[in-house]
Every structure is written in structure tokens, then in C-alpha cells.
């Protein structure tokens, strides 16, 4: 696991959470990236970043129109409040024995729990048995930007695997997408069209 946490949990339920993190572009996860939250009971929760937003306030509004120095920009990015808030949709969890479950998490993480970005090994572990049933947590959630999120997630899976393994994973994931969206043709075509962009 990546040793440096990207942020801490602000609020959560069993379908997702919001986390606050400091701005250090390059080390923060991007839209669609997989993250992991270790819990105190040895469980780990997996999720996908589906929204990243930066809040403003009165002072930031004031500063935006001013000719400000580098130090003040850094102060506002690093010291003031929570500069970046990310929303995460949970896609599964891992029990203390290391078994991965593609089901709803049994218990949400707690306030200020640390969140880490998944490395390639963790991405492979979560998708290792070729089952992509967890995608229903994304495809059936009307609150999520489904097309873009699935595409970004598949891009990460492809990057974490190589050669035939990557091709097989892509094929298996698309079979799952088609099966789940068979009654929603426009959405399915949107997903397939977007996925074709990353191939």
C-alpha cells in the first residue's frame, strides 16, 4: 500500500464517503482512481474517486481578483480549511484474511480515517478473479457519472496489468457492463463508445 495517506475521511455511509485532502498536485488521486481505506478492525474498503471539488470562501473570492504573492497562494492551498474535497463510491471490501468481497461494505469508515491511493498491486488484487460484478455499484447508482467513471476505472485496470492479462480483464469487464446495461441501450452505447477512446 502507498505509505502516504492522501487525506482523511470527512463523512461516510455504506455506499461512499467524502474525504478532505491537501493540494499537492501529482500526489493526489485523479477522477476514477481506486482508493483504499484501512479500518481499525483490519477490514479494508475499496472505492473509486468520482468527484473532486475545491471549495471557496469569502477570502478566496477576495484574493482571486487580487495580485497576490506565491506565499499567499500556498497558504490558501495548504493551510486554510480543507482545500480539496473528494467523493468516493465504495465498490467492495477486504476482510482481515485478505479475501476481497465485491459487495456493499458492512460498516462505513469513521471520521478522520486515513485514505490511501491504491497501487497497481492492489488494483490487480481487487480485480484478480476476473469478476467485475462490483461494477453494478457504479452502473446502478444514478448519482454517479457512470460513463466517465467506468472509463477512467478501466484505464487504471489496463495500466495495472499488461499484455494478454490486460486484454482479458478488459474483455471480462465489458461483458459485465453489457450484461448489466442490456436494458439500457443508450447508456451501454455511451460506455462502450467512451471505452473505445482509451483503447
Amino acid at each position: 500500500m502507498n505509505p502516504i495517506p492522501i487525506g482523511r475521511l470527512l463523512r461516510a455511509n455504506t455506499t461512499g464517503c467524502a474525504l478532505g485532502c491537501k493540494v499537492t498536485q501529482g500526489s493526489t488521486p485523479s477522477f476514477g482512481d481506486m482508493v483504499i481505506i484501512p479500518l481499525t478492525n483490519q477490514n479494508k474498503i475499496y472505492g473509486l474517486v468520482y468527484d473532486i471539488h475545491i471549495d471557496d470562501d469569502g477570502l478566496v473570492n477576495q484574493l482571486a481578483a487580487a495580485d497576490i504573492s506565491r506565499e499567499i497562494i500556498e497558504d490558501n492551498r495548504r493551510n486554510r480549511n480543507v482545500p480539496v474535497e473528494m467523493s468516493v463510491a465504495f465498490i467492495g471490501w477486504e476482510d482481515p484474511q485478505g479475501r476481497v468481497h465485491h459487495t456493499r461494505v458492512p460498516y462505513p469508515p469513521l471520521t478522520l480515517d486515513e485514505i490511501f491511493q491504491c497501487d497497481d498491486e492492489e488494483v490487480r488484487k481487487f480485480t484478480q478473479n476476473g469478476s467485475f460484478g462490483y461494477l453494478r455499484a457504479v452502473l446502478r447508482n444514478p448519482e454517479l457519472p457512470v460513463v466517465d467513471l467506468v472509463t477512467a476505472h478501466l484505464r487504471q485496470i489496463l495500466a495495472a496489468r499488461s499484455g494478454i492479462d490486460a486484454g482479458q480483464a478488459l474483455e471480462a469487464s465489458l461483458v459485465e457492463v453489457i450484461a448489466m446495461l442490456k436494458d439500457d441501450y443508450p447508456q451501454m452505447m455511451d460506455v462502450l463508445s467512451a471505452v473505445s477512446e482509451i483503447l
Binding site: 477570502l59 477576495q62 484574493l63 481578483a65 487580487a66 495580485d67 497576490i68 499567499i72 497558504d75 486554510r80
Partner: peptide, 18 residues
């Protein structure tokens, strides 16, 4: 004070208050 934009007031004092 100019760092605070159109309502000039020393930025370090704004932040200390905050």
C-alpha cells in the same frame, strides 16, 4: 494590505484572526 485585493487590510492579520 494590497494582497487582500479590493478591500485592503494586512493579509497576515486576516489570517491570524481566522
Amino acid at each position: 494590505a494590497r494582497q487582500a485585493g479590493s478591500v485592503p487590510y494586512p493579509y497576515p492579520l486576516i489570517r491570524a484572526h481566522e
